[in-house]
């Protein structure tokens, strides 16, 4: 207590250096740990053909005439196909932990979680501009499809280790994370393009062409499915 030392300095100067040092340290740490998505062995097998089939099927069975019913049936179909797809993902996972995982639990759990998450997702859709006063059920069905397409494969591929998922997406340079993480993983790319497709799917709605397919949310579902399918396809090329 008694010792006196004279410090007369502007402290941010020294603080800055330390910050930079800290930053570099962190970068190094992160680079080594979980900067990439789990690796899947066979990308060709992972092309989600069932998305294209399901979309075509829904159009075939009257998506435009009876939107609600067809979307619901389509979602059920998709859930079943997604279970198979999830098994495929787990088989192709290149991790040591593969044998220890309880695959049926993982798959069924991910489906159930997706069903639950579809509710907050539809709230998000409404915040982003989906109609509030009407078409609520259709918005929910859209959310259901989206959560099955986007969230479900991610849950399976990360095996519910959400912190790992979160860390792999964290970035200090967003285009870099896109290149090094999203483009490298067919599941993430497919999810990303599904979201992008849904986003773009809104555009034709206001046109005054008066076509039945312009009804809410057909264009969005189409955009989402197409995006997801293309994502799987494109990731084969990288």
């Amino acid at each position: 207590m008694g010792k006196t030392k004279i410090r007369k300095q502007v402290s941010f100067d020294s603080g800055l250096k330390e910050v930079v040092a800290e930053e570099i340290k962190k970068k190094k740490k992160v680079g080594s740990s979980s900067k990439t998505a789990p690796i899947l062995t066979n990308r060709i097998l992972l092309i989600p053909i069932h998305y294209a089939l399901n979309l075509a099927g829904m159009f075939w069975f009257g998506l435009m005439e009876n939107t609600q019913k067809t979307l619901l049936k389509g979602a059920l179909n998709l859930a079943v196909m997604q279970i198979a797809y999830d098994y495929l993902i787990v088989r192709l996972l290149k991790t040591s932990a593969k044998d220890s995982t309880n695959t049926p639990l993982l798959v069924i759990g991910s489906i159930i979680v997706c069903l639950l998450l579809s509710f907050p997702l539809s709230v998000l859709l409404i915040i982003l501009g989906a109609p509030v006063t009407s078409h609520l059920y259709l918005t929910y069905l859209l959310a259901l499809h989206l959560s099955l397409i986007v969230i479900n494969p991610i849950l399976v591929v990360y095996q519910f280790q959400l912190d790992k998922f979160y860390q792999s997406l964290q970035f200090s340079n967003d285009s870099q994370v896109f290149k090094s993480v999203i483009l490298k993983s067919s599941i993430l790319l497919s999810a990303f393009l599904a979201v992008l497709g849904t986003w773009l799917g809104v555009i034709p709605i206001p046109l005054d062409w008066d076509r039945p397919w312009q009804a809410w949310p057909i264009t969005l579902v189409t955009g989402g499915y197409t995006g997801a399918f293309l994502g799987g396809l494109i990731s084969c090329m990288f």
Partner: peptide, 19 residues
């Protein structure tokens, strides 16, 4: 509204992910 919410959600994602 479409543009604005797009920007809003991008901000949200950025806030969550930018380390």
């Amino acid at each position: 509204l479409y543009f604005i919410t797009t920007f809003g959600i991008c901000c949200l994602i950025h806030c969550l992910l930018d380390r």
